[in-house]
Design a protein around this nucleic acid. Structure first.
Lengths: 143, 143
DNA sequence: AAACAAAAGGTCAAAGAAGGTCAAGGAGTG
DNA sequence: CACTCCTTGACCTTCTTTGACCTTTTGTTT
């Protein structure tokens, strides 16, 4: 089997993650594309297919000046530890899109999540987010 | 992560706040802009995006001679004592009466308070209730 | 006191700098 | 050949940076 460009990029990133402390790397999409002499969206493709949640990674990114893509490999310990605030926010956004909560409710929930849980150890915070997510799931389906 | 100018200014301000007693700093916008060799509105931008209420800060300022920008990190030390779930529920009922939250929002909040905080040590639970109460107080008065 | 001048900070929109999406076409593989 | 996966590029969205112009406060002059 011949290695595709996507395969090479995948391997390259995995090596970087392997070498990293903390299972996490940050790249510039455009820069990496330059390295492999391909279009930037190729990088997006690799990340989307080889580093998504169902394969045990999760990614964040920021656009604009000095943007980045962060890839984190999640180990079991982290999985047990619950979900991040970002996940929680994403979940709320989904509820909003599906019109299961109102605009105001979503703002309220986010506001509380940010300000109400400050100074709580972060593992506990993540457990809370995780539980709240479950509760919300239940709540929005109540009669 | 390659830090953007906004990131650097953010970090700088956070260090200042960290070092301050009382979680509060006062800066001169123009002076800080000079320090970072940027336009003053850049400072406004950083403050608006990184130190707003939804992230747990609030700011005041004054124009004209002897002007300033004051950034305060919302402190929750007073909250440690905590309040009971009953108090929290009563509080929500008050909000409902004053029509500051909707019927559905109040049910949502109570639902989460009961089901989301199971299996959490009760002192911590009370702290959470207390914090949430404060946050709610703030939230319902936002513009 | 009124009028002006100077010294802050605020607003807003445009330009720039990333990353994201999506669909069409190409390359491998059974 | 058919199917799936890969590659590319045009176009979109988000975040940052900059600058021109505005408003508020204080200080100075008449």
């Amino acid at each position: 089997m011949k290695k595709s460009l996507a395969d090479k990029i995948e391997q390259y990133l995995k090596v970087l993650i392997e070498r990293s402390e903390n299972n996490e790397i940050e790249i510039q999409r455009a820069e990496l594309a330059e390295t492999f002499a391909c279009v930037p969206s190729q990088i997006t493709y690799v990340i989307g297919t080889r580093f998504n949640e169902t394969v045990g990674y999760y990614t964040e990114s920021r656009r604009g000046g000095k943007g980045f893509v962060r890839i984190t490999r999640i180990d079991d310990a982290q999985v047990r530890a619950g979900i991040s605030r970002k996940d929680f926010f994403d979940f709320i956004d989904q509820l909003l899109e599906r019109q299961l909560v109102t605009e105001n409710e979503s703002r309220l929930l986010k506001y509380l999540a940010v300000n109400g849980f400050r100074e709580i150890p972060s593992e506990l915070q993540n457990q809370l987010f995780s539980k709240l997510k479950c509760c919300l799931e239940d709540f929005v389906q109540l009669p």
